[in-house]
Amino acid sequence: MPSKLKIDPPLLNSACPWSTSLEDIKELYDSPYTGAVTIRTSLLEGFTHDDSVHQYIFFTPGKTIPANAPKGEESNPKGSKSTTEQTPSSATSSSSAEPVSTLNTLGYSHLTLSEYLGIINEIVGQRHLGTDTPTKKPFILSVTGTPDEISMAYALIANAAEMDEDLRLAMEVNLSCPNIAHASPPAYDPAQLAEYLEAISDSKSTYRGRMATPESVPKVGIKLSPYTHAAQFDMVVAALRAAKSNEPGESCVVDFLTCTNTLGSSLLLNDALEPVLHSESGTGLGGLAGAALHPLALGNVATFRRLLDQTPETKDIAIIGVGGVEDKAGFDRMRKVGANAVACASALGRYGVRVFESITKGE
């Protein structure tokens, strides 16, 4: 199964709260067990984070959640890991050995795309000094916004790649966050999806002639919502087949899919029968991830791989499988159903960067 996005080893993080700060990103980059680093989803102008609204919690499905259970918040605007380290030992899990899921009502990063490009330059720049970042692995910059803003985001990323040959950059267009009030994820809407694919096509065409080699043109992927019936999968694949590149040797303008994002409209009630989390909508509804999402994520990866492989326009699209992987068995399941690489979010928040070593070694 050929891949247009090279991630070796085929293990990385997905865009999440634990890939927000310089410290987060450098730790992920320095790990010999990650083949790429995904930056938390950003906007051109940043996102206004509010601790009283944008929250997350670890929980064990079927277990009662105490009303005073600690919630993950981002009180430290620099992205402190303090809440990450506290959460796995919180009262939301009756045993550290149990599979843990997450629910979140988060939006996007408060840092802008330009700030993240600066962070990446700082990390990669240390390579020239012979310090502790000897590898050159890809950074996947997760971005969102309108189609026009996505075009501008690609321009920023392509310009950065053009100026420094040591930067291996890709762009992931997040079309699937379920937590933004009054904004349905474009990944569910064929008309919106087509608009974004057109913007991606135009952006890649603009910069292809300027880059030193075709390989240096930043790869582009889309982060998809979880789908639950055949018509949804067919809609996405039809859009991808229609988004053909005019360049020789290219089939689709999209190089990879990140599959899948969190499952929206999920709700947790505490022992007082009140919503555990706050949210922009005021309902406490959020995105479900971790162990509870794993079977659906596996099904999404398997279905997309089967459908993509059926036509030459889409067979080379890579899939980054994400959803509930926290050990080698989960990694192996994702690879078995067709993931070119496997990403973790909830497990990263629960265990820290050491989770990638554990997965690799089967510990």
Rank of each mutant, 00 (worst) to 15 (best):
Asn159Ile: 12
Ser109Lys: 00
Ser89Gly: 03
Thr112Phe: 13
Asp148Thr: 13
Val143Ala: 14
Phe47Pro: 11
Ser75Ala: 12
Ser82Gly: 05
Ser114Gln: 14
Thr146His: 02
Glu74Gln: 11
Ala160Ile: 05
Thr105Glu: 07
Ile150Lys: 07
Ala67Arg: 13
Ala158Gly: 12
Glu73Gln: 05
Asp132Pro: 02
Lys136Thr: 07
Leu113Phe: 14
Leu106Ser: 00
Gly46Tyr: 08
Lys78Glu: 15
Gln126Pro: 12
Asp132His: 08
Ile140Arg: 00
Glu98Thr: 03
Ile150Ser: 10
Asn159Phe: 06
Thr133Gln: 01
Ala153Asp: 09
Ala67Ile: 02
Ser80Glu: 07
Ile65Tyr: 05
Leu117Cys: 10
Ser101Asn: 07
Leu111Tyr: 11
Ser109Ile: 00
Gln86His: 13
Pro70Ala: 03
Thr60Pro: 12
Tyr56Arg: 04
Thr105His: 07
Gln86Ser: 15
Lys78Pro: 00
Pro147Gln: 04
Ser114Glu: 14
Gly62Pro: 12
Pro99Arg: 04
Lys136Leu: 10
Ser101Pro: 09
Pro77Gly: 11
Gly118Tyr: 03
Glu74Arg: 04
Ile140Tyr: 02
Thr48Cys: 14
Gly145His: 10
Ser94Phe: 09
His49Phe: 04
Thr133Asn: 14
Ser82His: 07
Glu74Leu: 07
Ser114Asp: 15
Phe139Tyr: 09
Glu85Thr: 07
Lys78Met: 15
Ile119Gly: 04
His54Asp: 01
Lys137Phe: 03
Glu98Arg: 10
Thr131Ile: 10
Thr102Tyr: 06
Leu117Ser: 08
Ser52Met: 05
Pro138Trp: 04
Thr87Gly: 08
Thr112Asn: 11
Ser142His: 01
Ile150Ala: 11
Thr84Gly: 15
Ala69Val: 15
Asp132Lys: 12
Glu98Lys: 14
Gly118Cys: 05
Pro134Asp: 02
